[in-house]
Amino acid sequence: MDAIATRNLTKVYRGHIGRGAVKSLDRLTLTIAPNEVFGFLGRNGAGKTTTIKILCSLLRATTGEAFVMGQDTRRRATRKHIGYLPENPYFYEYLNPRETLDFYGELHGLTRAERAAEWDRLAGLLDLRDIAGQRVRGFSKGMRQRLGFAVALVGDPEVLILDEPMSGLDPLGRRMIRELILLLHGQGKTIFFSSHVLGDVEQICSRVGILVKGKLTTQGRLDELLNRRVNRVEIIATGLSEAAAAAVAARSDGVRESEQGRHFFVNDLDGANAVASDILQSGGTLVEFTPIRESLEEYFMREQETVS
């Protein structure tokens, strides 16, 4: 059974006077296995939030179906399995974290004793104890995100759906969220999260899907998608005579100079090794030898260009 599955999910927003209908999502078919960390990528307006809102039954799909843990998302009981963190989560400003978690626990159908236990568990996990009595009104972005995560985890759902969980956070906050996602992955949870920060995705996702203008253009494992072959090597050397440097440059595909030394670029690994031994034989010192692989960012840009 897939943790999340969508079949030909399409969402057309009805037009208003003077504005035509907008197709936000176009026949999206997606499957995410249990315990996967899935990164859902796309530019702003690509349809990521629309997909997430359909999964959480905040929006009705125009056509198509969505399932979480094998159950139709339109069914009430399905939502017991889902923990949702919206982008920039908003909570009642006049409640404090403890009251907030209690409220969501009650909506989740937990008894008073279960809600108290949830508070103990989540306050520890997300470091909420120091702010337990403060009203949400004065919360910083990072505090809100922590509370949002805690709310999503109320009732211990198997599937977590996170909409841009790291947007607007400082480096420390981002790191905390990353570690939390990995921790939850370790506990067997399925994590589906959208992002346009590719570095974060690359670090923690096992699979990604790329959405361009409402269409899924790619879906797969990161190591399969990215061309992991070394397509370029950067070599930095110092202590070469002008003549030796010119000879080495002749065998390279590019050269530049910096304070660190001379940078030689070679487009294949064997050639790079030959260049490196030339440098050493000419009495030079090898400072750096860096194979350059394709990053998710480069892949993502390539994908955007192909479509447009």
């Binding site: 959480c56 009981a77 989740h108």
Partner: peptide, 14 residues
């Protein structure tokens, strides 16, 4: 309008 509804309606409630 304040988007507090998102985290409420995604709960197992009618």
């Amino acid at each position: 309008d304040k988007r507090t509804i998102y985290t409420i309606l995604c709960r197992p409630m009618h």
